[in-house]
Design a protein around this nucleic acid. Structure first.
Lengths: 332, 332
DNA sequence: TTGTAGGCGTTATCAC
DNA sequence: GTGATAACGCCTACAA
């Protein structure tokens, strides 16, 4: 065997003394092959160290067994938690995953989508949170299936996997109102549908508790650790006693800020984080958090994508997973 | 234009009334095209909404503008920090990135490598830390360039980007010995070359300080948050006063454990973390840390990979980046 | 059960 | 400058 020269299906066919078609059958697990010739082919494959060229296969079959994941940033434990679920199921189904960071930048997202489609991915998973009309349109026009995870579509057209954000916010608010009067809510950008739902749940709980809605207690647009740090001062000014924070990283920043001010949790302040990413566990005191099952959100999204790719029936394409509130040390 | 039917280069050629070759030239920025025909082609591309099929291109050109990244797990902020650097430079150079989680499992890594090669990636970046002989051999045999980041090769054959782990451990130890007698070191698995280097630096500092090496102060094999938690008790038993911890997540676990025991940092205990991933910033008190420039380690590795792919000259393939020790609140 | 041959959508090498 | 035309490596009817 001429080393260094990569063996093709043709080489295998020749050394096994069969046709390319037969080799292809063996490689692809087609059962209509006599056992003896199958063995001969396998031997040849082994001998030549043959590995099918996935690119050629993709061109011929129009399937690449590659999917794309659009993620704001991989360094955020919330998104990487979901991505990990996606990746595990993907590899279980033999898909490779192209991950692209978008930084929530619409132009970048557009480019990424173009690039993924030009690479003929079999499907796309979008974790962007902020799904603009433009991106939504683009995704709907794509000739491959798309599943959102941790992201809502305004008209529920795209398949998605989420938790019930409204309910989660409602429950959290109810709980915090038991021991506090001034409970703040910290949604991320209000362009996220999720933020609107959270706010609805928050308001509902207030109403049922007979407490008036005070818009000074809504601290919107906070998405980073630094935002959280800065929040601690603003909250002091507003005499806030407890906070519901959508982004874990913001909650941790807030915690930091409070601790720096010498405030003791949960005695003088309560925090409930929104996603239960690993961060909530790593800080001290560990944060009570709504448990978004990140891994599952990714895994189930990916599983759904495989079904859509294979045109299997999907009963419900708007999946809502159960959440719970994990009690840790930032609440009484 | 017949909607739903994806336009090929042939369609463009026909509507622009040129040959495929010319379209290809225009698409690939070849200058040998008359301006008027170029415009005609661009119009046709626009009209037909043509996007080149990267798979077909890959088959014909033998380049896929896709690279593979092998990562233990994306949810660890150390690795995602590096991966983010890789991704940014990759997208700058128009490469897509296939990320595959290996969980440090050799069999998985082997499969991943096979899969990446079959997908004809143009190069591979390996972030695995523990580079086994088998994997190392496999990577060296690959027909595409490979760059390690945050990982050392036993014989320095594979290109790599790292910091000077020995020096970092030495400096850290020197510093901690100023105010402490019993300074522990917490390397990860001793199968990592990095761990050996760290230990060397540690020993050197001890020697220079005239302090005997006590192997009870080496807590090896700790790699998770839970490991760190458990460490806090073991360290108490050994009357440890300060610890140098390779993995940030372990350092955070240790911090947690100490705080739970009511120990005050840095007064009663000092910690220096090893990587300066975001985690060290998020905990309270924030951890003093050796600053491994994670983003740069990824970015530079990727940049080097592009050079290797294009067969450009690379002067030095064992790159050592500068580190520093970022003073935060876990040291005096 | 196995082989033949025509794509798949590009790029690249020649000619013209 | 531009156009044919053969690869690229595999899949998939269709035949046999």
């Amino acid at each position: 065997m001429t080393q260094e020269q990569i063996a093709t299906i043709y080489d295998v066919a020749r050394t096994a003394e069969v046709s390319m078609a037969t080799v292809s059958r063996v490689v692809n697990g087609n059962t209509n092959v006599k056992e003896s010739t199958r063995q001969r082919v396998l031997d040849a494959i082994d001998q030549l160290n043959y590995r099918p060229n996935a690119i050629a296969r993709g061109l011929a079959s129009k399937r690449t067994t590659t999917i794309g994941v659009i993620i704001p940033t991989i360094t955020n434990t919330y998104f990487s938690g979901i991505a990990r679920g996606v990746d595990d199921i993907a590899s279980m189904y033999q898909y490779d995953v192209i991950i692209a960071n978008s930084d929530n930048d619409e132009d970048k997202e557009l480019k990424i989508i173009e690039s993924l489609l030009s690479k003929q991915v079999d499907g796309i998973i979008y974790l962007g949170k902020i799904l603009s009309k433009k991106i939504s349109k683009k995704l709907k026009e794509a000739r491959v299936p798309v599943v959102l995870s941790g992201t809502l579509d305004h008209d529920n057209e795209l398949a998605s996997v989420n938790i019930d954000y409204k309910k989660a916010a409602y429950q959290t608010t109810v709980q915090l109102l038991k021991k506090n009067k001034r409970v703040a809510i910290v949604p991320s950008a209000m362009t996220e549908l999720e933020s609107k739902l959270r706010l609805e749940g928050y308001k509902q709980a207030l109403k049922e508790a007979g407490i008036g809605f005070d818009k000074e207690l809504v601290f919107e647009g906070n998405m980073t650790f630094e935002d959280g740090l800065a929040l601690s001062k603003k909250m002091k000014k507003e005499k806030v006693q407890a906070a519901i924070v959508a982004y874990d990283v913001v909650a941790v920043g807030l915690l930091h800020g409070l601790l720096e001010q010498g405030i003791t949790l949960p005695k003088d302040f309560e925090i409930v984080a929104g996603a239960n990413s690993l961060l909530t566990l790593y800080c001290f005191p560990a944060l009570t958090s709504v448990n978004q099952p990140l891994y599952d959100m990714g895994a189930i999204a990916m599983r759904m994508l495989t079904k859509l790719i294979h045109k299997e029936e999907v009963k419900e394409n708007q999946i809502i997973l159960e959440h719970e509130i994990v009690k840790r040390d930032s609440t009484k």
